[in-house]
Design a protein around this nucleic acid. Structure first.
Lengths: 116, 116
DNA sequence: TGTCATGTGTACTACATAGTACACACTTGG
DNA sequence: CCAAGTGTGTACTATGTAGTACACATGACA
C-alpha cells in the first residue's frame, strides 16, 4: 500500500459518516490545493513535505510516524536524536534491524520503567 | 565544530606525514572538483550528498555515521531500518533520547549477545 | 626564472522538491 | 434545469540540492 492510496482509503472511510471529508474540504483544512491532494492520493506526484504530511495525519487521525514512513521519510525530530550520538544509535539500530517486535517492545518498556 | 572545518583539520593532519593529502589530490581521489571541496571545507556551501560524504570518510579514515551527522544527515540505510517498523523505532528512540551513553551501550551489548 | 602544484573566486547548470493557479467535466439536490 | 460541490488535467513556478568549469593568485623548487 502506497502513501497515496492509503490516505485516499482513510479519507473515504471517514467520509462515510462525515461528508466534510471530501477531497476539497480536506485539502482546504490541510492548507493545500485540491488538485495537489488529488495527485498525491493517486501517486501522480511524490509525497508532500514532512510538515504537510503531519497536517494530513492530524486531519485523518493517523500516526504521523507511520504516514511519514509510507512516504519514505523519517521525521526530522528522530533524525536529530540520532545525530546527537550517531555512532551509538547507528550500532543500536543495526543491531535491532532483525530483532523481533517483542524484543523492541521489551526494551521500550524496560527503559520507560527506569531499569537503567 | 562544523562538517567543513572538521574534515579540513583531519585532512591537514593526514597531510603531515603524507603530502598526497593536498586538497586537490584528495578531491581527485574522492571524485569531485577541487574548488568544490575547498568551498565545502570552508563551509561556503552546504555539505555534499550522502554518497560523497561516504567517499570522503573512506579517504580520511573517518566514521561515515559521524561525518553524516556533522552534515546534518542520517544515513539512508538507518532510515530504512526505522521505516520498516516506524512506530516501534519512533517510540524507542524517543525513549532513549536522554538515556545515558552507558545505557545505550548496555542494550547494544545485550542484543548482540543474544539475550533476546 | 619559469613551471608546477596549491588553494580559491566567480559563473553557471541539471535535477529534485514542493507546491500554486486555473480550467474542465461530472453529478446531484432543490 | 441550474447552481454548487466534486474530482482531475494542464501549465507553470520558486527554492533547494549537488555539484562542474575555468580563471586567478600564490609559493616552492630545480
Amino acid at each position: 500500500m502506497t502513501f497515496g492510496s492509503h490516505i485516499r482509503e482513510r479519507r473515504e472511510a471517514l467520509r462515510g459518516d462525515d461528508p466534510s471529508f471530501s477531497l476539497r474540504q480536506v485539502a482546504q483544512r490541510v492548507g493545500i490545493e485540491p488538485a495537489y491532494l488529488s495527485k498525491v492520493e493517486r501517486g501522480q506526484v511524490a509525497p508532500p513535505s514532512e510538515a504537510t504530511i503531519r497536517r494530513i495525519a492530524a486531519e485523518l487521525s493517523e500516526e504521523p510516524d507511520l504516514l511519514l514512513a509510507m512516504a519514505g521519510k523519517v521525521s526530522r525530530e528522530l533524525q536529530e536524536i540520532i545525530m546527537r550520538r550517531p555512532q551509538l544509535f547507528a550500532e543500536l539500530l543495526r543491531q535491532l534491524r532483525s530483532a523481533p517486535d517483542h524484543a523492541l517492545l521489551r526494551i521500550v518498556r524496560e527503559v520507560r520503567d527506569g531499569n537503567w
